[in-house]
Structure formats: structure tokens, C-alpha cells
């Protein structure tokens, strides 16, 4: 009995099994959890983390790291609001936000890949620079949205489901495909597995890494726009600490920090587990201070499980 349980938990799909069990338990035990309204609320609460996790997965899979995502999300939100207020065109505002995100990501990528500066240090620096830019642009205050159409990005619904959730789902689909079915995805995993061997096998390692960070910037831009729309303003202090939630979700989803190992399904499950934990604690009125502890414990348990799984595969 225990042997079989061990086999299931430590197998390839162990995380999914745990997720299903946790979901069932929470549904049964927490009142008001399994309602349409709460489910949509839960999904909406993970939109930002989920979107950014898509590309963070690539970053980690290539043995890189990106701490600047939270700042880029805030900055892109500011840019979206300010640019659309200034031009009167929401579309221009959105494009400007995405372009800014892409630009910061591109700079990250070039510094890391071409000048060979450690990714942790580089993005630690851009994290602060970009946050500073957001604060300067708005003089430290929130900037209100002029056009009510901008709110509609977050408020509008398709088939009863809010647009941001659709965006999240589409991005999950796209990046899952990119990881498994494209040269870019396979090269990313190969670089994480062995960068030098990948280079000698003809992979353009530098260009791939620059693309990864640029994409990360683009995706942060999208997340920033949706966040600004949801909170109805550009907030220079938005998304503080987002990078840690995103990396936690990825690691929870089985992405290896040593590179070379990542799955989209794992990351989706990681994002949802974090969301469910938070949602259930809110429903149970557990104070926010305790929630930090629970989140930390969940992360540790996930990593321990992953460790057990690798050694079980190695030793039997």
C-alpha cells in the first residue's frame, strides 16, 4: 500500500496527483470554495503570476534567472496608462507598454549573453533601475486612467469568462507549444542542459538567450497592462515581490534551477497550487501574516518532493 502510494507520488505525474487531491480536499472542506464565482476569482488572482511564469520557465530552463519582472510589470502598466492618456489611443498605449517591456528584456538579454554578466546581478540591477523609472515618471503617485474603455480590458467577458483569464489560457497554450514543439524551445532546454555542448552543436546560444529575455519583457508588458486595467490605474509600486512568487510557482511546477528541465503542465499546476492555497486561506479568514508562512512551507515541501523524486529515479 505504502509502496504504491510512493510510486504514484514520486512518479512523473506526482505533482498533478497532489494537485488533484489538494483540490478535492479544499473543495470538500472549505465552504464557498467550489463556486463559479470563487473559481473565476481564483483564476483572476493568478493571472499576473501565471502570465509571467510562462517565460520565467524558459529563463530558468536555460539556467538563467530574472528578478526584474515585478518592476517591468509595474513600469509597463504605468507606460500603458500614461501613453494612452497622452495620445488618447488605447492601442498606442498598449503597444508602447509592450515595446518598453521588450526593450528592458532585450537589454537584460544583451548584457547577460554578450557581456557575460551573471543573470542574477544584471536583473537585480535592472529591477531597481526600472522601478526607479516608474516612480520618476509618475512622481511616485498612482496615475488614473482617463478612458473607461481601458477598464474593459479586465472587465469584459467572453462566454462568461473574463478576458484576462482567456489571455492567460492562450499564453499557456502558446508557450507550451513553443517549449515542446519548436527549435527555440528545444534549444532553450539544451542550453540549460549543457551550454558549451549546445554551442558546439551549432546552437546560437547568445541569440537564444537574448530572445528569452526579450520575450520575458514582452510578456511582462502584457501582464502589466492587464494589471493596470484591473486596478484602474498605473501604480509605480505595483507587483513588488512578483519575481519571487513567479519563481516559486515555476519551482513548484518542477522547473529545475540547474536548467534543462521544464514542462508547461508542471508550471500551470505550480501556479494553480499557489493560487488555491491563497484563495482557501482567504476564504478561511486566515490573517495575511500567516499566509506567508504557509506559502513558504508549500514551496519547501514541493522542492523536497522533487528531490525525493530525483533520487528515487536514480537509486530505485
Amino acid at each position: 500500500m505504502t509502496d504504491r502510494l510512493k510510486k504514484i507520488l514520486l512518479g512523473e505525474q506526482g505533482l498533478v496527483v497532489i494537485f488533484v487531491v489538494a483540490f478535492a480536499l479544499v473543495s470538500a472542506l472549505v465552504p464557498n470554495f467550489l463556486t463559479d464565482r470563487n473559481m473565476l476569482g481564483l483564476l483572476q488572482s493568478v493571472v499576473t503570476v501565471g502570465i509571467v511564469a510562462c517565460t520565467m520557465m524558459f529563463c530558468l530552463a536555460a539556467r538563467d534567472f530574472d528578478l526584474s519582472v515585478g518592476s517591468i510589470v509595474a513600469f509597463a502598466g504605468m507606460v500603458a496608462v500614461m501613453a494612452s492618456n497622452a495620445t488618447g489611443s488605447i492601442l498606442l498605449g498598449l503597444l508602447a507598454a509592450i515595446a518598453c517591456g521588450a526593450f528592458v528584456g532585450f537589454i537584460n538579454g544583451v548584457v547577460i549573453a554578450k557581456f557575460r554578466i551573471n543573470a542574477l546581478i544584471t536583473t537585480l540591477a535592472t529591477m531597481q533601475i526600472v522601478r526607479g523609472l516608474a516612480l520618476i515618471a509618475s512622481d511616485g503617485r498612482a496615475v488614473g486612467i482617463n478612458s473607461p474603455d481601458f477598464y474593459q480590458l479586465a472587465l469584459s467577458k467572453l462566454l462568461g469568462i473574463p478576458t484576462p483569464i482567456w489571455v492567460l489560457a492562450v499564453l499557456f497554450g502558446i508557450f507550451g507549444f513553443v517549449l515542446n514543439r519548436t527549435v527555440f524551445g528545444k534549444n532553450t532546454l539544451a542550453i540549460g542542459g549543457n551550454p558549451e555542448a549546445s554551442r558546439l552543436a551549432g546552437v546560437n546560444v547568445d541569440r537564444t538567450r537574448i530572445w528569452i529575455f526579450t520575450l520575458q519583457g514582452v510578456v511582462c508588458g502584457i501582464a502589466g497592462i492587464l494589471l493596470a486595467s484591473r486596478i484602474t490605474s498605473g501604480q509605480p509600486n505595483a507587483a513588488v515581490g512578483l519575481e519571487l512568487s513567479v519563481i516559486s510557482a515555476c519551482v513548484l511546477g518542477g522547473v529545475s534551477l540547474a536548467g534543462g528541465r521544464a514542462t508547461m503542465s508542471g508550471v500551470i499546476v505550480g501556479v494553480l497550487i499557489m493560487g488555491i492555497a491563497e484563495n482557501a486561506m482567504n476564504l478561511l479568514n486566515i490573517p495575511a501574516f500567516y499566509q506567508y508562512i504557509v506559502r513558504g512551507v508549500i514551496l519547501l515541501l514541493a522542492v523536497l518532493l522533487d528531490n525525493l523524486r530525483s533520487s528515487a529515479l536514480g537509486r530505485r
Binding site: 527549435v183 542542459g193 549543457n194 549546445s198 536548467g259
Partner: peptide
């Protein structure tokens, strides 16, 4: 300099030559 650890034999073989068979970067 040769093997890419953590990836399958299949991926290790195809890493370079796959560019002849892809369409718009899709494997």
C-alpha cells in the same frame, strides 16, 4: 563539450540537423 545532459538521445541527435526539417521554427 559533447553530450547535453538531462535530454534524451533523440534530442541529442536532432539538435543540429533538425533545422533542415522545421517549418517556421516548428519541429
Amino acid at each position: 563539450d559533447g553530450i547535453i545532459q538531462g535530454r534524451s538521445i533523440e534530442e541529442n541527435i536532432n539538435i543540429s540537423s533538425r533545422r533542415h526539417h522545421t517549418r517556421f521554427g516548428v519541429l
